[in-house]
């Protein structure tokens, strides 16, 4: 089960450019690992943005959860896309 969002987040990268944490609704989520990632191009002829999806395990306070974050290339913005139960 999961819940869908489309809210902007701020992604933080480590020194070797790996995702380290993201900030959503003012709260910091520390990324433990990237489970998997993929890209889709969308309808490029309709000028839809290329998107990079990643499912990450992240922790807020002491709780771990799985989150799907998405990068929209056109807007150069990361979003929280889905939270898995």
């Amino acid at each position: 089960m999961s819940k869908r969002y489309q809210e902007p987040i701020e992604l933080k990268l480590s020194g070797n450019r790996k995702p380290e944490a993201f900030v959503w609704r003012g709260r910091n989520y520390k990324i433990k690992d990237v489970i998997r990632h993929w890209t889709v191009n969308g309808d490029w002829w309709q000028k839809e943005s290329r998107r990079l999806h990643a499912i990450v395990t992240a922790k807020r306070w002491s709780e771990y959860g799985q989150y799907e974050i998405v990068y929209e290339a056109k807007r150069r913005q990361w979003y929280l896309y889905r939270v898995y139960d």
Partner: peptide
């Protein structure tokens, strides 16, 4: 590995 959902 074309970075699609099923790839891993």
């Amino acid at each position: 590995n074309p970075l699609l959902p099923y790839t891993p």
